[in-house]
């Protein structure tokens, strides 16, 4: 069992889709909901834009986890972008298994534009989980 560093603050890269997740995250802020600041947001137009390469780059560059957040299935602003995300994500998970990276480190969540509270809980949850898992410490410096 990995020893948990007491002051460990997980570093999480978040890919948030502009229409739903990013707006929902904004709403959390507008509502002054306090949640751990461990997810740094990167805005994309659709969660379907998230190439697995970007995820692997994040993990190999020092991130302990990656959050991909988009619209709920059926509500994608581009009708089916998030469906492609699901498919890619499943393959990505298998790849992570092969690398020996815990599946909990890369998460796919659905957050609608009005779910500020939910976004905060997702971040809170993920931060707690990663705190228990510990830092990724990907030593490989090979360029992805």
């Amino acid at each position: 069992m990995r020893k948990v560093e007491s002051n460990f603050e997980p570093k999480i890269v978040g890919f948030l889709c502009k229409w739903c997740a990013y707006t929902g995250a904004d709403l959390a802020g507008t509502s002054r909901i306090k949640y751990p600041p461990n997810v740094t947001p990167i805005r994309v137009m659709c969660s379907g834009r998230v190439d697995p390469v970007l995820v692997m780059k994040a993990l190999s560059s020092g991130a302990d986890g990656v959050l991909i957040a988009g619209c709920h299935p059926g509500d994608c602003h581009y009708t089916s972008g998030n469906v492609k995300t699901i498919r890619r994500f499943k393959l990505l998970q298998r790849m992570l298994d092969q690398f020996g990276i815990e599946r909990d480190r890369v998460r796919l969540e659905w957050v609608s534009a009005s779910e500020g509270e939910r976004y905060a809980r997702v971040v809170e949850n993920m931060t707690e989980t990663l705190r228990t898992l510990g830092p990724l410490n990907w030593n490989g410096s090979e360029e992805v």
């Binding site: 990167i42 994309v44 137009m45 659709c46 379907g48 834009r49 998230v50 190439d51 697995p52 390469v53 970007l54 780059k57 602003h77 581009y78 972008g81 492609k84 890619r88």
Partner: peptide, 24 residues
């Protein structure tokens, strides 16, 4: 939306203002 960008195996598609270089 950029869905095609993420799917191209040759990296031949780019999304203006959301290029791989910018996101990376």
């Amino acid at each position: 939306c950029g869905v095609c960008v993420a799917g191209c195996p040759s990296g031949a598609i780019e999304q203006r203002n959301f290029t791989d270089a910018q996101l990376l």
